[in-house]
Write a protein that binds this DNA or RNA. Structure first.
Lengths: 234, 234
DNA sequence: GGGGGATGTCACACTCTCGTCACATGATCG
DNA sequence: CGATCATGTGACGAGAGTGTGACATCCCCC
């Protein structure tokens, strides 16, 4: 049984999330106020916090910061709900340390799936599986937003990190540029698909020795591949 | 070209949706009755169903449930249209399995964005159903866009891959050149049917040991056969 | 207010793909 | 056995798809 705290002021969304998370076997607490959220989080120690960026009383960023500052709630994963154009970079970046974010408008079903994924990771944490993913010469710490290539830490921007993780999560499957735009930039980003190319290029530059993990599939999109040089058939 | 089934009884909304979806390049079928919608969905296999929660004959939730129960329509994404205060909670998420919902009154632009996003993702889900196909000496990974012949990976262009998969999906049935043009190249084929020959040739070249899977049926077209060696002459 | 990093966009070069043609080969039928 | 049509093959040029560097803009931090 996992406990989830939802900090969200839209009644419709409140109901949908509440109902479905309960249906999924979680214990749910809902509040519409940020400060109340911080207080509840400290008292109840939920396993995950769903946090709207835009709240009636205080900014979601502030809530997130307070959660990450207080020892009781520091380890709790936070998923932010953001509108387009809001300060996504700060949210996911090192400053606030949210574990994931979803850009509004989003598919509710997708959000629920994502929450489950994060909770799975969390549980794995308790055992001995990895919140830290190691993959050949690449190591990813999703929580801390850090990566290493052959043991050397590489600094990525928030976008680059999100792009890498998105590719990694669907590894061995081609991702079209539009699919990447949806997942990384959000569904209502009116952005050229060429932008993806540019960021892939920047990502590869920084990955250096691990650049071959990101493969181009001409005419289709990009693919994160398990074994760059040696195409190992199962 | 994607097909969208609209189940909606308000004439005004019908018109707006029909117009805008067509404008967005979709093929649209409209019905005002839920049961009719279920029937149409099974017959036409649309790529997405837009479903009003409040219908004259049966509840939208019931329609949704039936769609998700029947194997022919289980994989089809459903977007629910609801009024504020209607039982949104049960609709989305995992109980009824609708992929997303929109609350009336909604912005058409937002609805279109959601539909596009779901369609992009929906295709990916289809691939997930059977990601890896093994067939004699041939192995196809649709999700990754990769194939192996006797364990060795073969690089195909996007077109060649699509041609192979199309032939495979209709295996043991002859495909005329124009049928292949429609399925692989798209409806707007101002292309010589001879082009098919050339690409079949290129495909065979790359398939090497597996080249005999693609059979020529003289005077008709091509066929992907199960058992290359025993091509029984009539 | 200035500096610097992050991000989106554009233009250009280059590679590869793909459609088409011309010709070779092979099959079918009288 | 030859005529004729269907298919296989190779070559070529146009065009699309992609990588790359440069630039403008925005925002944060000092």
């Amino acid at each position: 049984m996992t406990r989830i705290l939802v900090v969200e002021d839209e009644p419709d969304l409140q109901r949908v999330l509440d109902y479905n998370l309960r249906q999924g076997g979680h214990e749910v607490t809902v509040t519409r106020l940020g400060l109340e959220g911080v207080k509840l989080a400290r008292e109840q120690r939920p396993d995950l916090v769903l946090l709207d960026l835009m709240l009636p009383d205080v900014a979601g960023t502030e809530v997130c910061k307070q959660l990450k500052e207080h020892p009781a709630t520091r380890g709790t994963p936070v998923v932010m709900l953001t509108a387009k154009g809001e300060e996504i970079d700060r949210v996911v970046g090192f400053e606030l340390g949210a574990d994931d974010y979803v850009v509004k408008p989003f598919s509710v079903r997708e959000l629920l799936l994502r929450i489950q994924a994060i909770l799975r990771r969390g549980r794995a944490d308790d055992e001995e599986l990895e919140p830290m993913v190691e993959f050949g010469r690449l190591k990813i710490d999703r929580g801390a937003h850090r990566i290493w290539v052959e043991g050397v830490e590489i600094e990525l921007t928030a976008l680059e990190f999100k792009l890498l993780v998105t590719l990694y999560d669907r590894r061995n499957r081609v991702q079209t540029r539009s699919a990447l735009l949806d997942d990384v930039w959000g569904i209502q980003a009116d952005i050229t698909t060429r932008t993806v190319d540019t960021h892939v290029k920047r990502l590869r530059e920084k990955l250096e020795a691990a650049r071959d993990y990101v493969e181009t599939v001409r005419g289709v999109g990009y693919r994160f591949v398990a074994t760059p040089e040696e195409a190992a058939p199962a």
